[in-house]
Design a protein around this nucleic acid. Sequence first.
DNA 1: CTGTTAGCGCGTTCAC
DNA 2: GTGAACGCGCTAACAG
Lengths: 339, 339
Amino acid sequence: MTVSITDVARAAGVSASTVSRALRGREGVSEEVRARIEIVAASLGYTASRSASTLASGRTFTIGVVAPYVGRWFFGKVLDGAEQVLSAAGYDVLLYNLGSREARKRFFARMPARKRVDAVLSLLIPDGEESAALRSLGVPLATTVGGARPGFTVVGIDDRSGATQAVRHLVNLGHRRIGMISGAGGPQQWTTPGERRQAYLDVLAEAGIEHDPALEADGDFTVRGGERAMTELLAAVRPPTAVFAQSDEMAMGALRALRMHRLTAPDDVSVIGFDDHELAEVLGLTTVAQPVAEQGAQAARLLLRQLADPNAEPPAYQQIPIRLALRETTAPPSPRGPQ
Amino acid sequence: MTVSITDVARAAGVSASTVSRALRGREGVSEEVRARIEIVAASLGYTASRSASTLASGRTFTIGVVAPYVGRWFFGKVLDGAEQVLSAAGYDVLLYNLGSREARKRFFARMPARKRVDAVLSLLIPDGEESAALRSLGVPLATTVGGARPGFTVVGIDDRSGATQAVRHLVNLGHRRIGMISGAGGPQQWTTPGERRQAYLDVLAEAGIEHDPALEADGDFTVRGGERAMTELLAAVRPPTAVFAQSDEMAMGALRALRMHRLTAPDDVSVIGFDDHELAEVLGLTTVAQPVAEQGAQAARLLLRQLADPNAEPPAYQQIPIRLALRETTAPPSPRGPQ
DNA sequence: CTGTTAGCGCGTTCAC
DNA sequence: GTGAACGCGCTAACAG
């Protein structure tokens, strides 16, 4: 039924190996024969069976992408960027979406990717055991989240620098009471919240502003959490005149909380986010823009490079540049701000 | 290096065929032996090679998902829903993200999914040629977009009914000048814009409201487009007091346009969307809620059913229920609305 | 440059 | 209930 390599070989009057060589562009086939084979193969609609080639060669031409939740903006974008690079290079993408705790457990327990992929791109932060499980696959590993980890090529942004830019921006506008909405939870290995917080503290210190713990609130990296956190900050004895949210989604929640209190940004409170979510521009949200899809693309490129040259030492950590996207939710403090 | 079925067989003191039978739960293996084999396999960390099983059995245990753009909210959600169902059933998901015109062309020209998947879920609307290419794979096909198509199992919502509910809601609130932001473009086979528009016209007619072409604007199904469209509507001789946007993203653009004009919803203009985008709730947007992830999940289930029983006639079209999500952007027309 | 010979690791008969 | 033999479709090593 489906056409195999021997069908092509017979039709072209050559052996199967010659067809194999010709179609994969290997040397040792005369141009004449190669051309004939290509025509025959095309006319027969032949595609080599991936399973058979994999079995014979050991290469799968497939990259596994492990994600916590492709339905979320951030991961969808990273996946998008990675997929484009990989498919352009002739690789297939096998997606493992480990949203639920059970799915995740099942994946790492049974490792369905074993013998199925040439490399793995992880969009989630594996704990110690999970990292070991991935390393046991014996293939190149990359990730776009979390700090440097042995065995992984990590592509990320400079969280410290991004947060520094954000808070400095608020300081430069003249704010002195600057709040922060952060995410306290998350896996141990996720260094982002800590890095951004440290930058916040450092900038306050360098500006000679005393840190007020009442101006920090946990937003859980969700819109709802951001709303709750902002509400909390507004209830402080002396509310902030500006707020740095560690993510755009939390910043959006904060904007909503302001609206609920009949306040607006930046007239009453300045708000700056982090990410450059696709709706940030719509909302006019000032933010630290990180190229999300590009991080996935770059991680994919580094994996491809390792596959092309297994001997080359892969970079342990690579940074993608970020920039401040000035929009409409930040301005100098106004006298009529919340007291 | 990697452990194979013969390794397990030797360690368990049985033959490879017995291991194969035992591990796949086939009959004809004593419970005693099966238990022993399972223990040995687990302790050795054995996973059957998918390529080898595929080659031997013809089944790939892999489903191909073809998407136009996983980075977009809607498709990410559908993919998410589908992936969960498929991976829970032991299937892998091979993702083909056909964002660019070239990627799409390349995919349909070379059909890299051939011999690689047991079924295909398409999140994009294939044209005639592309449909034929997919059908030539000889596997079950499903889709969550577009109208019914031969050879495909289609899972979707009742666009007509959803739009009817939306516009009736506005009529019931007392609105008479009701605008619509729609999307004119898109592929021929995409019936959604037309269906929703027809419902809009029908409800106006049934309410005895004369249709005013000046109250329709094209929003291109994007936030930006929605913003432009709303601006256009506000510039009409007699602007609408309420607007039905055919998607939440366009509705969000409309809200932004209102803000730019120092107007608000619902005080000046009521706005209702369609989708229940994850940020709709945050913005308080009244909308027609469609369960996006559920559509992907249901399509996946129908594919699995066909794989389990190839003889069963697959349903040609299946509808997922929708509901009106009443929130804060719709209210009775106010006397101080735009004139 | 090209053909022949062996597997790759399984699932699937068919005997026993 | 279990094992031996065969083949799935292809690539790799070796001849020629």
